[in-house]
Amino acid sequence: MSLLKLDNLETYLGQYHILQGVSMSVEEGSITVLFGRNGAGKTTTLRTIMGFNPSTTGSVHYHNQKISGIPTHLISRKGIGYVPENQGIFSALTVEETLNLAKSKSTGETEEKMEWMLELFPDLKKFWRKKSGLLSGGQKQMLAIARAYINGDGLLLIDEPSKGLSPIMVEKLMESILKMKEKTTILLVEQNFLMASEIGDYFYIMDDGKIVHDGLMQDLKEDKETCQKYLGIA
């Protein structure tokens, strides 16, 4: 059953027609990866789901409930955790304060979620009282992911977590994300095909504000032509 359904979304940013009829669905318990080159509209898709850039037409359904058209904080409270492209770190808050804030409007077993995140990302426990702004790039990404997971309940939207991180760090993060699939559904925006294709179950490829391909990740790996055409991989 699909947990999240985007139906024919059209989103404008200012006068620009960015999303031009985007339809997708994310199956419960899966990792679905959204690929696409720079400027394709991936971030805008996530921002439309979160209600930051509402679409002019089309709809978003979560658990078969319409969530497009309501304010962001209420969309979040339905159980959607969000990791923005720039990580959205509260630099002057400590790790502790950040995760407590994530708990404040969270539903579900918040204590358990917190414990599991500290187990998965021990660095967060180590730097518990450190200001988030002083963490390394990788640690900031872990914090952003933990915050979203603790706040959410059922779905995580993660926007290009590999951005600016070393290959080793990216690998570690991808492993963690794969582990998180046990407890939550994930919609992942990525440009790192090698990494994302290892952990994804389904994929969508976006180009110029439209979905141009979708299917099982397994099939994409064998489809050299599509990979080359849209993802620039030989």
């Binding site: 304010p71 962001t72 904080h73 959205g88 509260f90 630099s91 404040s104 409007k105 706040n151």
Partner: peptide, 13 residues
């Protein structure tokens, strides 16, 4: 620090 992120955590800004 970040109004959007606070909203994304379910808080009514």
């Amino acid at each position: 620090l970040d109004k959007e992120m606070v909203q994304a955590l379910g808080i009514n800004v």
